[in-house]
Design a protein around this nucleic acid. Structure first.
Lengths: 341, 341
DNA sequence: GACCCGAACCGAAACGTTTCTGTTCTTTCG
DNA sequence: CGAAAGAACAGAAACGTTTCGGTTCGGGTC
């Protein structure tokens, strides 16, 4: 192990340049109040000494951590195949990195921990703001953070009064289009494999499916919780495909469960899409790599992340930014959906 | 937007409890030098006031940021389907979270930026240590960070002198076993779809394949760079399957490229595994969801992350920890590999 | 009874910035 | 020529902790 060297601080720079610390700071930060000649001198001394400001000192002084927090509640093992995660973070990074912010990422396994982590990040002022993702009905984080007056931004929160700025992408239109398309392909029994019902986005997809079914004059009856996992999708296939009222088409609340459903249905001896059409939601890349390729509703997690980061940073700056609504998710038809025969 | 409230600091706690700041600190941190009665009093005052120590103040004073850095160099769009990423981070979290550390995650698009980010994190002391992942031959980060004397830990660095502690999982044995298995299944032309050759782990897989081929008396000739992406795997299929010396089995350097290869081969009219056997590397969950299910070499990214975090934190504490070697990756045979016919 | 020792506690420095308030000196204008 | 104004810089406080060195006080030892 190498041994750490002495850090060079702004004090060293000031001493070496023969100015006061305050002048060195002023010069380096490009603020007025110092002559061009001294500014140049300070700058060259700083770079000669290899001076890099301490994030710690700056954070304390500026009352800013220059970082934002994201807590993902996911089983460690499921995390690997999680679709939303990577692209969403990519979008966040894209926005915050050029602005000198860093993402503090935490993973938790259960939901009480999730709340605790958010509050710990906020109260200790480790971060300047947090993302509220995968919001639940009656989410404890929301009230607590609002009470703290801590900057936050919601990703697809329920409509209604939400105390923070929010970024939304609607999937409703695409779900309607999917159901309409299936109906036009002669499907009558269209089941839904839902996500865990405590999530706001699960509920929204369920009710979008319900409304869409009614809109084409079909009965929305069969829904099974697929838990957003491929195993859940497999179990749903067991239930639905061996049950009395076997569906001819299935809309799954995410791609993972759709892939699970599809594979299990095939194992059970059904052909996709000849015997049963399957569609997912999210638009993960892997949907193109399974066979048949997966029809889906493609969302834009990266864009969502970028917008969420934009809103969060402006909330941190105390700006009143309007909610952001990005273009609705789009239906992507692939081989897993076909006319009923 | 809610308005922030006044923060309660240790000064408030001390005043309210009628002790000096230093005593309050001592009491709260459970250190000796304060009577049990005052300790209790300070503690109850602190909790009554809702005191939470400021991470910023503590960081400055303790010369510790209590965070570690991970920079992932990945295209924003590829990130989504990245296998290693999620599980590795899960492993890191698992170790650092209970110890009060937070992960600072950055994503970059190109490799000069990657180096810059590492150095910026280190020099500004935003983090206390960094993970060196996906190390390249002659990786610029290594020398620079070593020069700084900054704590770091290498994930599967090249053997030889590496200035930091390292955690390793070997895939060599499993690659040997794979090639041996393929040879026993009568395959003679076993090609390799490699990763980008500037990565240490690409090179290691290439030479493991080479050695394994020689060990069973076969010629290691055909290798195509699949770039660790599914598109790269598809292009490799185009090259190999339509070329003169068509292989009967292919070992791909990761599962993503293996899936791409497999799908493209099928598109080209070949049957897997009847016409060509395919195996990947990594052991991502999706390998079980494609058809035929993918044979692979299963690594343990979560375990790797956990061990890397352990080494990094002990390096930060100045402890001299021995390198960590976790159990070798294991061959997992699934439907994509079969006897040549 | 003088002395010492340790427990309990306090004050202040230190961590490395930024920023506010002064101070000095030059310049300009009446 | 004197006063006012402004530019350039300096000093110190503030951010919120931890820790080091000191002080006080009570009790035990000889």
């Amino acid at each position: 192990m190498p041994t750490p060297r002495e850090r060079v601080t702004i004090i060293d720079v000031a001493r070496e340049a023969g100015v006061a610390i305050s002048s060195a700071s002023t010069a380096l930060n490009g603020q007025p109040g110092v002559s061009e000649s001294t500014r140049d001198r300070v700058r060259s001394v700083a770079s000669a000494l290899g001076y890099v400001p301490s994030a710690r000192g700056r954070a304390l002084s500026a009352k800013r951590a220059y970082s934002v927090g994201l807590v993902v509640e996911r089983d460690f093992d499921i995390l690997e195949s999680d679709p939303f995660f990577g692209a969403f973070i990519g979008g966040i990074e894209e926005y915050i990195a050029p602005r000198g912010y860093v993402l503090a990422l935490q993973i938790t396994q259960d939901s009480t921990l999730t709340v605790d982590r958010h509050l710990a990040l906020a109260r200790s002022r480790r971060v300047d703001g947090v993302f509220l993702n995968e919001i639940k009905a009656d989410d404890a984080r929301v009230a607590e953070l609002a009470e703290l007056g801590f900057p936050a931004v919601g990703i697809n929160p329920a409509v209604g009064d939400f105390p923070f700025p929010a970024v939304r992408q609607s999937g409703t239109e695409a779900i309607h289009e999917l159901v309409r398309t299936l109906a036009e392909l002669d499907h009558r029994r269209i089941a839904h494999v839902s996500g865990p019902p405590h999530y706001v986005h699960s509920l929204e997809r369920i009710s979008a499916w319900r409304e869409a079914m009614e809109a084409v004059g079909l009965q929305a009856e069969d829904t099974v919780n697929g838990g957003f996992t491929s195993d859940g999708g497999r179990r749903a296939a067991d239930v639905l495909m061996t049950g009395e009222r076997r569906p001819t088409a299935v809309f799954c609340a995410n791609d993972l469960s759709a892939i699970g459903f599809m594979n299990r249905a095939i194992e059970l001896g059904f052909r996709v899409p000849e015997d049963v059409s399957v569609a997912g939601f999210d638009g993960i890349n892997f949907g193109e790599h399974v066979r048949p390729t997966l029809s889906t509703v493609r969302t834009a997690p990266r864009h969502l992340g970028r917008e969420a980061a934009r809103l969060l940073l402006s909330a941190i700056d105390g700006d009143e930014a309007a909610d952001s609504t990005i273009a609705p998710a789009r239906l992507v038809l692939r081989d897993s959906v076909a006319r009923l025969r």
